[in-house]
Write a protein that binds this DNA or RNA. Structure first.
Lengths: 203, 203
DNA sequence: CTTTCGATACCAACCGGTTGGTATGTTGTC
DNA sequence: GACAACATACCAACCGGTTGGTATCGAAAG
């Protein structure tokens, strides 16, 4: 089955918007990259903003598949699963910057004030992914007897740290700085759950 | 002394670019907000990109003044100074999102691939500000005998966390989530330097 | 089985408005 | 009168979006 124009446009959007930003990406850019015409674009999306919302949703589904099938869910200990997630995020940082950075994190900075639909789609993507971490965090909080944080808050903080790491990588034009930043995130989680000299509460 | 067109344009850029993003901000937008004409714009800046570089530099100078005169430098203990800095950053999060978020963090996401001059100016702004934290971090590392991190890396991580907090605030359209994220940054620094003094543990 | 018909998918050409940028003044100051 | 600091008028290219039309399909009618 040959890919439809709609699917090709969505894939083109993931790449082009991460390279050039949302506003700087023209409808013609997307059509050229997807190999379709403008008529096809506006047949499938009623506006450029509507494509952005669809692209954010497409991004959510794509990344959800990637993370659901990843190996970081395997460890028996919930803290180990969280740390494996962080390591997995670190391992994804490779190659061109536009290939490992986050579509919705890029897009929401430009669109939050102009389109509530786009902003909402980006938030759903970020918050929805963060939610997939909450069960492990809640289990680790229970097992290691940690107070003062909520699973939701820490899950969102992992995403904030990673988004910030991407910004620094773009600014320095160096993926290495993003890896270094995520190292701090990992250290925070380790310190939070395993302070020196204390062991986990044995069940 | 009445403000020159150049100064008015730079001030207009700080506001407008944070509201709408760099690409979506037109030269006409800036001229209208600054109350000057297009001729004045291109008299002072040879291109829109050149204004972006100047705006990033102007941002660096403006924020440098704000932070240099802030009270967080007062505590005698270097760790207290770092924590006071984090509290100060938290206290700045108030009002409209475009008023407390970071110009260069917003701009670099759009421009890193298109203009190396803009990207470099943004990196200088972020890295330059991070450097102002390094002396206190180095002193705290020495005083509290902490290993495994460098002052430069931790200083950059504070900026990454804060930039990520801004992204989440934009996505959720809620400054509160940014404040919550910076709370995690503060906890990380506390755990890093004072692992034995954890207050957050449940009895 | 064939024909008709409506719906979907797609295309090339085009539209009015906006874009960053320029060319040519005019004004105020030394 | 020289020169910086603006303003006015303008342009070619590009923008998001619309137009009228074609190709291809499955379902239903004959």
């Amino acid at each position: 089955m040959k890919p439809s124009a709609r699917a090709k446009l969505l894939d083109a959007a993931l790449g082009t918007i991460r390279e050039k930003g949302y506003s700087a990406t023209s409808v013609d850019d997307l059509c050229a990259r997807a190999g379709v015409t403008k008529g096809a674009f506006f047949h499938h999306f009623k506006s450029k903003d509507a494509l952005a919302v669809a692209a954010a949703d497409h991004w959510s589904e794509t990344t959800a598949g990637l993370f659901a099938s990843a190996a970081y869910h395997d460890p028996a200990d919930p803290l180990d699963r969280i740390l494996a997630y962080v390591d997995f995020r670190k391992s994804l940082i490779d190659g061109e910057i536009a290939e490992f950075t986050c579509l919705v994190g890029t897009m929401v900075q430009e669109a939050y004030g102009a389109s509530d639909d786009i902003r909402g789609a980006c938030w759903r993507s970020i918050a929805g992914h963060a939610e997939t971490l909450e069960a492990d965090i809640a289990a680790a909080i229970e097992k290691y007897n940690v107070g003062g944080i909520t699973p939701e808050s820490l899950a969102l903080y992992t995403q904030a740290s990673i988004q910030g790491a991407f910004i620094l990588a773009k600014a320095k034009n160096d993926p290495g700085v993003a890896i270094d930043m995520i190292g701090h995130l990992k250290r925070y989680i380790e310190l939070l759950f395993k302070p020196e000299g204390r062991e986990a509460r044995r069940p």
